[in-house]
């Protein structure tokens, strides 16, 4: 396939085109992935999550500058929400990444969630694979940052950075959101503000409580003032440290396997769903939903009825 060959040769335009193809038309993905999947698996994938306003984009920008200075190539996938009303989106993460936009060793792609929940877009994983095949050594995924539904990033990334800022009550939000379970690294950004030490202490205390028995990696808590570039080096070192730990402990393989499992499951779900819908008669779905609304039919009975068309597969084992 010509476009994949161009991607593998380092053509950035081909990479950008491929990302759009995958994002716009899921029926293209199988063909494209067949050609490029074997060229992926090289990159360190780092997820960055945290409430809006904690400084995720600025932090990613500063980390990228440092990593570039060390000679590695960086990819950034920045996800922002699609408006549920218009279907449009305002993708503004690049505002904080301006200095990176003419560095040939950096490739930034903004993505809208296009209806998917969980802080990532449906195609985020495949866009990351394109960057991986392009040869980017480290790939950041910056999530929407809505705060409490962001656990999907744990499956998409090797290393998850949770960003908090003093005074936002983020420490407590982090527990509610289940971020303690997924964080490999905490960054207290805007650490020149009042309350930074308190935030670090609270996180430390909460980590002690949340740390599972026998856990070998304790997430470091690092302070940063991203806007002034302070504390960047320690965070970059911690990212590399976590990568090293994953490799040595066998966790890297485990995480990769879990990710593959989730991907295959998702692909099967979508395929089955699509096939089920395609077997219905025109208007059958709408009629059924109306009957449920009128309380003539309950949702379980409706599902059972739809599954009947699947023969053996639709029968309860």
């Amino acid at each position: 396939m010509e476009i994949v060959e161009r991607l593998l040769a380092g053509d950035r335009r081909a990479a950008a085109r491929l990302m759009s193809l995958i994002e716009n038309d899921t029926s293209q993905a199988p063909r494209l992935m067949a050609a490029l999947y074997s060229h992926t698996g090289h990159a360190h994938i780092v997820g960055v999550t945290g409430s809006p306003g904690t400084g995720k984009s600025t932090l990613v920008s500063e980390l990228t500058k440092k990593i570039r200075a060390q000679g590695e190539k960086v990819g950034i996938v920045a996800v922002d929400p699609t408006s549920p009303f218009s279907g449009g989106a305002l993708l503004g993460d690049r505002i904080r990444m301006q200095e990176l936009s003419t560095d040939e060793g950096v490739f930034i792609r903004s993505m809208a969630t296009r209806g998917s929940l969980g802080g990532l877009a449906r195609a985020t994983g495949d866009v990351v694979k394109v960057l991986d095949a392009l040869g980017q050594d480290l790939i950041f995924i910056e999530t929407v940052g809505a705060g409490q539904s962001e656990v999907e990033i744990a499956r998409a990334a090797h290393t998850v950075v949770v960003v908090v800022a003093p005074g936002l009550g983020d420490e407590i939000q982090a527990i509610k959101a289940g971020l303690f379970e997924i964080a490999d690294l905490f960054v207290v950004n805007k650490a020149d503000r009042e309350g930074a030490e308190g935030a670090v202490a609270t996180l430390n205390y909460l980590l002690d409580m949340n740390q599972a028995e026998g856990e070998r990696w304790r997430p470091p808590i690092l302070k940063m003032v991203a806007i002034r570039g302070e504390g960047v080096e320690a965070v970059v070192d911690a990212l590399k440290g976590h990568r090293g730990y994953l490799k040595k402990s066998g966790q890297l393989e485990l995480r990769n396997r879990e990710r593959s499992e989730e991907e295959v499951k998702r692909i099967i779900e979508e395929a089955l769903w699509g096939r089920l819908l395609s077997r219905l008669e025109e208007g059958e779905w709408e009629r059924m939903m109306l009957r449920i609304a009128d309380r003539e039919l309950d949702p379980y009975a409706a599902a059972e009825k739809l599954l009947e068309s699947w023969g053996d597969l639709g029968k309860e084992g």
């Binding site: 699609t82 408006s83 009303f85 218009s86 279907g87 449009g88 989106a89 305002l90 993708l91 503004g92 690049r94 505002i95 301006q98 936009s101 003419t102 903004s110 809208a112």
Partner: peptide, 21 residues
């Protein structure tokens, strides 16, 4: 914002962009 409300995906990059950027 208006184009977002018209259903487009708008990539907004802020002030002081060079032609290269």
């Amino acid at each position: 914002r208006a184009l977002r409300d018209a259903g487009l995906e708008v990539i907004y990059t802020g002030l002081r962009q060079t032609p290269e950027m």
